[in-house]
């Protein structure tokens, strides 16, 4: 218990050490999630487009894209 407190205290520099690590963690996680979400969305869009293309040609309708 005491050692955990001591560890978190970082020799009195907790206010500087932890924000640095947390900030890096947040930015790295956020970038990863954003990029991954963008990729998934792009994959869906592409599938949709390919689908529409297939059906659009048989139905002979123009698409609004």
């Amino acid at each position: 218990m005491e050692s955990a407190v001591q560890f978190l205290d970082m020799g009195g520099y907790a206010l500087f050490v932890w924000p640095a690590f947390i900030m890096v963690a947040i930015v790295m996680t956020a970038l990863l999630i954003w990029s991954w979400r963008d990729l998934r969305r792009e994959r869906q869009t592409l599938e949709l487009l390919a689908e529409r293309r297939g059906s659009g040609e048989t139905a002979g309708t123009g698409n609004d894209a």
Partner: peptide
């Protein structure tokens, strides 16, 4: 993602 976005763009233009 960038590659797919480019492909989507080309597809859209073709359509």
């Amino acid at each position: 993602r960038e590659i797919l976005a480019r492909q989507a763009q080309t597809l859209r233009r073709a359509q």
